[in-house]
Structure formats: structure tokens, C-alpha cells
């Protein structure tokens, strides 16, 4: 184990007030610490010296909950591919490095404090259509509905999205298309999602627009930043599903829809 001395530039901000970067010296950080553990060490020292600790989001610390965020040196979750901030280890940094640490920035993700942002916009998009309507109660038989292996695998790839918001943070336009396309695409791929497919697609995209996210300009920074490596092909599918749903909404009446079986 070796120890690292790092210069941190950390964003400090209270809700609704202008923020600034604070220079913090992080001395003697063990290189096997995770990035969040490094923040813990820094915060302990800030508290000991009577200063305000840096607020940041975290929960499971094993890469599956989607709580940790942070723009590290200009990249969401830091420089490693397919990695959340909690899975990023300090051995990827070098002695004397300057590390810029900022919140995920988007109008739809207002800063709560320092590095914590309110990602409630994602919840509201999910509530608008990211579900299927089923009778709850006794569990249905497993495999009662046959689903092709390829379809199940693809839906599972989309379902890997942990809703962390790295796609929004990485996008030049603060677009939420990768998140929305993964959440809509997962259900739109499966037989259980078919009855509400159009309604879901339209509602989720409309909620996304309402929340004030930007649009997709096909740069694919989201895919590069995604800790779960969600593919931008889900965005292609959302574009396709949305066009079809929009045209059907405009031109197809209830009766014709019934004839079509959806």
C-alpha cells in the first residue's frame, strides 16, 4: 500500500445559492481506498478541524444502487469505464494529482448541497410510464408467458440501468434519453409491456421534456459514461417507438387499435 497526496477542487454550494470550488488538500490517502472512502477521510478531517464536511450521495457502495454521483475530472463517476464512483479506487490516481469534483449538472437535477443533487425528475419519469399494470396478490406462474432468450437478454441489458444520472451529467445537452430509453425499452421489449407500450412511450418522453432535460444530438457520451454500459441502441429504439406511438395516437382510433391487437 502506498499513500497519495492529492489536491482536490471540490464544488461547495447550498441550495439556491451560488456555489464555488474549494481547494482541499487530501494528504496520505491509501491507494486501496475507494473514491468515497477518500471523501470520508477528507470529511473526518474537515469535521475534526471544525469545518463543514462535503455533502455527497452514497448508499450501497457496491455499484448497484445508483446513489453515488460526482463529476470527477470532467467525467461522471470518474475516468474508469463501467464503474460507479464507489467502485473507483484511488490507485487510478497518481501522487500530486489535482482532482476536480463537481455535482452532476443539469437544470432538472438541482443541487441540494455540495455534490448532492435532487434526481427526483427520474422518479417522476418512471411514475409517468415506467411500469406495467398487473394484478398484485398471488405470484403468477414462472415462465407462464414464453419469452425468447434474445428478448429476455436484451431486456435484462436495459434493466441494468441503476438510474444514477451519469448519462445526463455526461451529455452536452443534459439529455436524459439514455435513461428514458433504457427504462421504456426494457418494458417495450417484453410481452408484459405490450398492452401499455404506446401510452408508456408517449408519457415518459413527455415527462422527460417537461422536466427540462435537453435533446439527444447523437454524441454518445452517455454510453461512454454509463457505469452499466447501457447501449445507445436503446435510444434508437425509443426514437422508433415514439414515432410509431405518436403517429398511432394521431391517426388510429380505438377500433382500429383493437383490430391490430394492441
Amino acid at each position: 500500500m502506498s499513500l497519495l497526496n492529492l489536491h482536490l477542487k471540490v464544488w461547495r454550494q447550498h441550495r439556491g445559492q451560488p456555489g464555488h470550488f474549494q481547494d482541499i488538500e487530501a494528504r496520505e490517502i491509501p491507494d486501496h481506498a475507494s473514491f468515497l472512502e477518500m471523501m470520508d477521510i477528507v470529511n473526518e478531517r474537515l469535521i475534526t478541524s471544525g469545518q463543514d464536511p462535503v455533502a455527497f450521495d452514497h448508499d450501497c457502495r457496491e455499484g448497484i444502487c445508483g446513489m453515488c454521483s460526482m463529476q470527477i475530472n470532467g467525467v461522471p463517476h470518474g475516468p474508469e469505464r463501467a464503474t460507479t464512483t464507489c467502485q473507483l479506487h484511488m490507485r487510478h490516481f497518481r501522487e500530486g494529482d489535482t482532482i476536480w469534483i463537481e455535482p452532476f449538472r443539469a437544470k432538472a437535477f438541482p443541487v441540494v448541497k455540495d455534490l448532492m443533487v435532487d434526481r427526483g425528475a427520474f422518479d417522476r419519469i418512471q411514475q409517468a410510464g415506467g411500469f406495467i399494470t398487473v394484478r398484485t396478490g398471488s405470484a403468477p406462474d414462472a415462465n407462464a408467458i414464453p419469452i425468447g432468450k434474445e428478448v429476455a437478454d436484451a431486456a435484462m441489458d436495459a434493466a441494468a440501468c441503476i438510474g444514477c444520472g451519469a448519462c445526463v451529467a455526461a451529455c452536452k445537452n443534459a439529455s436524459a434519453m439514455l435513461f428514458v430509453s433504457a427504462k421504456a425499452g426494457q418494458l417495450n421489449s417484453l410481452p408484459q409491456g405490450q398492452p401499455e407500450k404506446d401510452r408508456r412511450t408517449l408519457a415518459m418522453v413527455r415527462q422527460m421534456d417537461k422536466e427540462g432535460f435537453g435533446h439527444c444530438t447523437n454524441h454518445y457520451e452517455c454510453e461512454a459514461a454509463c457505469p452499466k454500459e447501457i447501449s445507445v441502441r436503446w435510444i434508437t429504439k425509443l426514437n422508433r417507438d415514439y414515432a410509431a406511438a405518436g403517429l398511432r395516437e394521431a391517426f388510429v382510433g380505438r377500433q382500429e387499435a383493437a383490430e391490430g391487437g394492441d
Binding site: R105, A106, K172, S175, G212, G214, H215, H219, Y220
Partner: peptide, 19 residues
């Protein structure tokens, strides 16, 4: 214009990885 409005505060550092 909508996309500019979607990120009112610029990053101190932003690195494009693939675009």
C-alpha cells in the same frame, strides 16, 4: 435553445470521451 437551458451552470471541467 432548450438544451442550453437544460444546463444553466457549466462544469469547471468537462471531458468529452467519444464525441
Amino acid at each position: 435553445r432548450q438544451s442550453r437551458a437544460a444546463r444553466p451552470d457549466a462544469y469547471g471541467r468537462q471531458k468529452a470521451q467519444v464525441s
